[in-house]
Amino acid sequence: MSTSAFTTAIAQARDLLRWHSPLRTELWAARLTASLEQDQVAAFLRELAENGSTEARLTLAALAAVNPSPSPSGAGPSAETAAAEETAPSSEAYVRAAEGLVDTLPQWVSRMGRVTCEGAWYGKADPYGEQTLAVLSFRYENGKEPHILVVGIDQPNGGLAVDAVVEEVKFLDDLGLDAAEPGVIGGRILDAIELGDRIMGAAVADTLAEVRPLAIARARTVPGLVRGPGDDTAARFDDLPDLPGAREAFEKLVEFIGDRPLWWSPSRVSQFLTSWLPREAIMSDEAIAAMPEVARAWSRFLGDQPAVLREIDEDAPRLPALMADDSLAGLAKRIARNRL
């Protein structure tokens, strides 16, 4: 007797055969992948293969399209993800189950997964950059069904993917993002998804799981992927105040923001000025005096948010006293100071 998942998939595949839409079918296959429990996959694929109907063959081909083997560009999973997938259904299982089936299906089916990346964008999803958006745009090889993949990346929790959607290209108009290198953004998306896979209990949107297989498949098609890419936001900052110690102060700010420079909220500013600097930083008096203006200049560069500037105004006057309080220094700072 057919399983419930099988019966539902066949009915939905029958509708998709009438739509002739590679994109609609891939999105459906991604949701189907997310709905299958690990121990269901082998039996589900076997039931589809044994059925052999057009609907079953379309289901197998669509699952293979959104669960492909690593692309020729070499953008396979990282060592961490490969280890995590040792007990999970392999993409090879989906690919093997669909071998030779595409040629038995309508011609439009062959276009699934065969896309060209046409652009990339990156930037803040909110005024304080607590979440960033990584966007890739694609079009099928026949030029039809242009679409964008948008992945939300959480900054306070280390840069993990927390949501993903596939939308029409016009959706990009409302995001206000900067153009970026596709290889960098593709790598950033894969890194963010893999980080989320390694963190148990991470708070993510329910929709992420349904888009995740397609997001990975799309990102892997991007040529020239850069894994672990840096963020050049700080390197593009060119409005350093003309003050003694400003360069030294900015170097400490860059050390603090690390690889998440767009995240600059009132709470992060306060943490920097009242906690991190007194605990971690050894600075000259000139740099301490220049730091408030450096922080303001950096804030203007990131969008000039009034709440951020107010936080600087509130916390900056305390900085000299905090830096002079030896009881606030962390162990690394105390050791480094003793070596001077």
Rank of each mutant, 00 (worst) to 15 (best):
M1Q: 13
A5C: 10
A5E: 14
F6L: 15
T8D: 13
L32K: 13
S53V: 08
A56H: 02
L58T: 00
L58F: 00
N67V: 10
P68W: 03
S71C: 03
G74I: 04
A75T: 14
A75G: 14
P77C: 06
E80H: 10
T81I: 15
A83F: 11
V102H: 07
R111Q: 08
M112E: 00
G113Q: 05
V115D: 00
E118N: 13
W121D: 04
G123R: 06
Y128S: 11
A134P: 05
S137I: 05
S137Q: 11
L160A: 14
D163P: 05
E168I: 08
F171G: 10
D173P: 03
P182Q: 01
P182V: 01
A202R: 15
A203F: 15
A215R: 05
A217P: 01
A219L: 05
R220Q: 11
T221N: 06
V222S: 01
L225G: 05
V226I: 13
D232Y: 11
A246P: 03
A249L: 01
F250Q: 09
F250L: 11
K252M: 12
K252P: 06
F256I: 05
D259K: 13
P261F: 07
V269K: 01
L273Q: 04
P278S: 06
E280L: 03
A289M: 03
E293T: 04
V294A: 00
A297W: 08
S299E: 00
V308E: 07
S327I: 08
I335E: 14
